[in-house]
Simulated scan of single mutants.
Amino acid sequence: MRKKSWMKIHTYLSLFFLPFALVYAITGVGYICGFQQDSFANIYEIPLDSMPERGQEKAALLELLNTHHLKIPANQEVRFIKGNPAIGNLAYSASISKDSEGKPTFRVVERSLYGVLLLMHKSHGTQFSLLGFKLSAFDIFAIGFGFSLLLFYLSGLIVTSFCKRDRLVSFGILGLGVVACALAVYVSI
């Protein structure tokens, strides 16, 4: 392929995946700085006397939401997370679980956009089976983004002909990058 074709691949893939790169950059830095998926979320917790009986989880959740004048999630399919009933999605959910003392608690979480995007980054979206893997739609694009990052570097190196004039310096900087990455992993273990 000619350099011009590599430039187009580089440019168009870069533009297409720019929103994904921003999501990963913002949520990655936020997560490292301590901002979790429930940061900036509205959370309501109400202690309960007991857990609902098996088969009555949906009715109990809906009754609690109505009693406390809270929004009913669009997705009312009950799923069990670590044995605890929950309805809703990543953005808005209601659940009943036991707190740190073992007492039942009704919990409603309305996440911020950051919280939802962080959960996308961590691959927690609604998942379906594809070729034996459990993936969300975001996961599929994330995998495409990962492969595109390799293409970005490859196409960038081809377009610049791997810095013909400064090839020795370029290889030296690449070597420094390898050493810096290896040391960062070693020191962080």
Rank of each mutant, 00 (worst) to 15 (best):
R2E: 13
K4A: 14
I9V: 14
H10T: 10
T11N: 09
P19G: 12
L22Y: 00
V29G: 02
N42M: 08
I46D: 03
M51Q: 09
E57S: 09
T67K: 14
T67S: 10
H69D: 15
N75K: 08
I81G: 09
K82M: 14
K82T: 10
G83T: 08
N84F: 13
A86C: 14
N89H: 01
L90H: 01
K98Y: 03
R111I: 01
G115K: 04
V116A: 05
H121D: 04
K122H: 07
Q127M: 09
F128W: 09
D139Y: 04
A142L: 05
F145L: 07
G146P: 00
L149K: 05
L150N: 09
L151A: 11
L151R: 02
F152E: 07
L154R: 10
S155L: 01
S155G: 04
L157Y: 08
C163M: 13
K164S: 08
R165I: 12
G172P: 03
L174C: 14
G175F: 02
G177I: 02
G177E: 08
V178K: 03
A180Y: 09
A180H: 06
A182T: 13
A182V: 15
A184E: 09
A184H: 11
A184C: 09
V185K: 02
V185D: 10
V187G: 03
S188E: 03
